[in-house]
Simulated assay, not measured.
Amino acid sequence: MANQPAYKRILLKLSGEALMGREDFGIAPDVMRFLAAELKEVIDAGVQVALVVGGGNIFRGEGLAKAGMDRVTGDQMGMLATCINALAIQDAVERVGLEARVQSAIRINEVCEDYIRRRAVRHLEKGRVVVFAAGTGNPFFTTDSAAALRAVEINADVMLKATKVDGIYTADPKKDPTATRYDELTYDEALDKRLGVMDQTAMVLCRDHKMKLRVYDMDRPGALMGIVMGDETIGTRVHR
């Protein structure tokens, strides 16, 4: 592991469910404090950090669409849920002394900025955390796809997907005790095996733009710092 960060700019993808902690709904304050501390350590090391957050802890449009709600309406409600989470992350990181900006793919100027690529990059260059909200701004696209898109747009060195398990497994390790973890995969292998790492749109976008991906356990203290400092043993590496 190197003494200098292995990456200059990272994009971290967080699911909305990750913010719940042990709760059944909403945002757990202890999770936010832990996340803010992990981000501060990385930024103090000179790494630029952007995030994309989901909204499943508050509302998931796809689920209600299956119950009869109009899918576009449901997805728009889900986009608003991601904005709530993004504002919570902004508040948490500012409490530990960092600067943060929320940029939304849908216009809600009273509470955050519009997503403008060049402005986002400028914020990163100034050491600010940038939280991208509202997915891509379009229905039918997941926040995984939004994360892949933003990672490519801001020229991130790597996209990190924080999950509840320590990488990608042959099957769901919570359901199958015989599942084994991959140390690394190619995008084509992950797509062919249908491992459910991310939706296929996101995977193909990362593959075609040679975006590195690391899937890791967000609950492991120091894991984020370990990855940015070059520890190849943390999580699963996915590459072209």
Rank of each mutant, 00 (worst) to 15 (best):
M1K: 07
P5Y: 11
R9Y: 06
I10A: 10
I10P: 05
K13P: 05
S15V: 09
S15C: 07
E17L: 06
L19C: 08
G21K: 13
R22E: 14
R22W: 00
E23L: 10
D24A: 13
F25N: 06
G26C: 07
I27D: 02
P29I: 03
D30Y: 09
V31W: 01
V31Q: 13
M32D: 03
M32Q: 13
M32A: 03
R33I: 04
F34G: 00
A37G: 13
A37C: 02
E41P: 00
I43G: 01
V47Y: 03
A50R: 04
V53W: 08
V53L: 05
V53E: 01
N57Y: 02
I58L: 14
R60V: 01
G61F: 05
A67D: 13
G74L: 03
M77F: 07
A81F: 09
A81M: 05
N85L: 05
I89T: 03
I89H: 12
E94K: 15
R95K: 15
R95S: 14
L98W: 11
L98P: 10
L98H: 11
E99K: 15
E99M: 12
R101G: 01
S104V: 04
I106C: 05
R107W: 04
R107C: 08
R107S: 14
V111M: 13
E113M: 11
D114A: 10
R118E: 15
A120F: 02
A120P: 04
R122D: 14
H123P: 03
K126R: 15
V129H: 05
V130K: 12
V131T: 07
F132W: 12
F132K: 12
A133P: 07
G137Y: 03
P139C: 01
F140N: 13
F141A: 00
D144P: 06
S145A: 11
S145E: 13
S145I: 00
A146E: 03
A147I: 00
R150W: 03
A151H: 09
E153D: 15
I154K: 09
A156N: 05
D157G: 04
V158F: 06
M159L: 15
A162T: 04
K164W: 01
D166S: 03
K174F: 04
D176S: 09
T178I: 00
R181E: 02
Y182C: 01
T186A: 04
T186Q: 11
Y187W: 02
D188I: 02
E189L: 06
D192R: 12
D192T: 15
G196H: 08
G196C: 06
G196N: 06
D199Q: 09
T201D: 05
M203G: 06
V204Q: 15
V204G: 04
L205K: 15
R207V: 01
R207H: 09
D208K: 14
D208S: 11
D208C: 12
M211V: 10
K212L: 14
Y216S: 09
Y216P: 05
Y216W: 15
D217P: 04
D217L: 14
D219L: 15
D219E: 12
P221L: 01
G222M: 06
L224Y: 10
G226V: 05
I227C: 07
V228Q: 02
V228N: 12
M229D: 08
M229W: 10
G230T: 13
I234W: 12
G235I: 09
G235F: 10
V238M: 10
